[in-house]
Simulated scan of single mutants.
Amino acid sequence: MKIVIADDHAIVRSGFSMILKFQEDMEVVGLAADGIEAYQMVAKHQPDILMMDLSMPPGESGLIATGKIKEDYPETKILILTMHDDEEYLFHVLKNGASGYMLKNAPDEELLLALRTIHTGGTYIHPKMATSLVREFIHQDQKGAESDPFELLSKREIEVLPLIAKGYGNKEIAEKLFISVKTVEAHKAKIMEKLHFKSRPELVEYALKKKLLNF
């Protein structure tokens, strides 16, 4: 299987590469430092699997990149590797199309199992997180699924939201995302409308709660 590794730490990329180097059925074909580079590597190599960190500051996050890559390259399966054992992260990446979610402190054997499981069409969830996933499904079944306003946001709005929360002005956001100021203003208005906010402090508090400022 052809694999691309995306992580903002070079030493982590090297470590994963060394582990996979000794596997006869695995080949690392590309390395990336953030979500944008991950997208480029997937476009170039068409790998079977993308191993991707969730948070890669200051570049594009794995959460945002997952949605974009699955939309344009659905055949590439994505395994999220992260230090976050937070069920909100788990739910969002699965909804965005990831095939697996595991913690970076897991043993090498678990990583190899996860890759082989995903490659054969399965889904791999770290055992600790799988319990949370089952509990959430049971909770939704019992109480009825209440929609989270966050799910209404588009991929671009998810990019704009943390930048607003960090205090960037419309012009700065436009330059970072290569869009016009008017487009930023439109996204900003939509975000406030969808999340039912009236002020920036509300948005900042929401971004902190959702841990979006790490992205």
Rank of each mutant, 00 (worst) to 15 (best):
A10N: 02
E37K: 00
D72V: 04
V204W: 02
Y89D: 15
D148N: 15
F22G: 03
L161G: 06
R200C: 08
T120Y: 11
S180Y: 02
T117S: 12
T131S: 07
N96M: 11
V181W: 05
K188I: 07
L112T: 05
P74Q: 06
F137R: 12
L203F: 08
N170Y: 03
F22P: 01
I80H: 07
G67P: 12
M41A: 15
A65C: 09
P74F: 04
L177V: 00
S55V: 15
L103F: 04
H126T: 07
E157P: 11
L153S: 06
T76M: 07
K211H: 15
H84V: 06
E37R: 04
S132A: 12
E185A: 12
T183V: 12
P74K: 11
M26C: 11
L90Q: 00
N170Q: 12
I78K: 03
E88Q: 12
F215N: 13
K171L: 13
Y39G: 05
E159Y: 06
M1E: 03
V42N: 07
V28G: 01
S180T: 15
G169Q: 11
H92P: 00
L195T: 05
I118Q: 06
K128E: 13
F22W: 05
L103P: 10
V4M: 09
A145Y: 11
M129C: 10
I191Y: 04
D108V: 14
I64E: 09
H92W: 14
V184A: 02
E193Q: 15
P47T: 10
S17R: 12
S55F: 08
L163T: 09
D34P: 03
A207M: 09
G121A: 02
M41T: 06
L161D: 05
I49T: 01
E172V: 01
L208P: 07
E75D: 15
H92M: 13
I64Y: 00
D85G: 03
S55T: 00
G122H: 07
A10E: 15
Y39R: 09
D108P: 03
I118K: 08
D85I: 00
L94Q: 00
P58Y: 03
H9N: 02
I11M: 13
F16W: 07
D7Y: 07
G144E: 04
L20E: 09
A145M: 04
E151T: 13
I36F: 05
Y101C: 04
L20M: 14
L20T: 10
G167R: 03
Q40Y: 02
G122N: 09
T120L: 03
G97R: 13
S147I: 15
H126P: 05
T183K: 13
M56G: 03
E27P: 05
L113P: 08
L133E: 00
I78S: 04
Q46W: 07
